[in-house]
């Protein structure tokens, strides 16, 4: 027998199931008193640098029905394009912006909603700048392994056009599905990002 590698296998994923909120956002499902506040509800405080925006949308299944029991997480850079993470080696991010958020999709409307800031640009591995984007992660009953995607901004046409990640997408018809349209809601810039499975 040849030598064996010493690497381990990643633990296989299993669906988050219908009750993911018991673990992720217990207060939201009326399990109160275990801890005071669900993690990831608030991204932005008064001291946070950057343009305040709302990101919202819905998740649709393969038949076009809205998924009302999903959990969405986002991860993004600060206004200067730095991540608030020990793995960020390029500098120190805005200490008043965690950059991570977690929200359930609404049990009635299916909408998720984050109040955040518009991220700055982050370099690709070769140093070219990627367009501003937010990393999105989706789990739900029926999803066997969490789905990663990216939200890009509809009003960043020039940056989107030169983004090395967007440029690598072979089937161009899929490109617009990664771009959130900008509108205004009560004077707040609002980006709508629907996710279709």
């Amino acid at each position: 027998m040849v030598q064996t590698l010493t690497t381990l296998k990643e633990s296989p994923s299993q669906t988050a199931g219908p009750y993911v909120h018991i673990g992720a956002t217990p207060n939201w499902v009326e399990i109160t008193g275990v801890w005071d506040e669900d993690l990831g509800l608030v991204l932005v405080g008064p001291e946070t640098k950057g343009e305040r925006i709302i990101v919202k949308g819905r998740v649709f299944d393969g038949s076009g029905n809205v998924i009302k029991d999903a959990l969405i997480e986002i991860w993004q850079a600060d206004a200067d394009g730095l991540y608030n993470s020990p793995e960020e080696k390029r500098g120190k991010a805005d200490p008043n912006f965690v950059g991570w958020g977690r929200q359930p999709t609404d049990g009635t409307t299916g909408e998720y909603r984050f109040e955040t800031i518009k991220p700055g640009r982050v370099p690709y591995k070769d140093g070219r700048l990627m367009a501003p984007h937010i990393t999105v992660w989706i789990v739900a009953r029926g999803i066997n392994i969490g789905l990663h995607t990216r939200l890009y901004f509809g009003d960043e046409e020039a940056a989107n056009a030169e983004c090395p990640v967007l440029a690598r997408i072979e089937h161009k018809f899929r490109l617009p599905t990664l771009i959130a349209a900008r509108s205004e809601e009560n004077g707040m810039p609002t980006y709508t990002f629907d996710i279709r499975l």
Partner: peptide, 20 residues
């Protein structure tokens, strides 16, 4: 009905995925 209909895009890790 909750599985992606299109193949997943292959995205090499960037700083966005290697931080958390």
């Amino acid at each position: 009905l909750r599985s992606p209909q299109y193949p997943l895009l292959a995205l090499e890790n960037t700083i966005s995925e290697m931080t958390g």
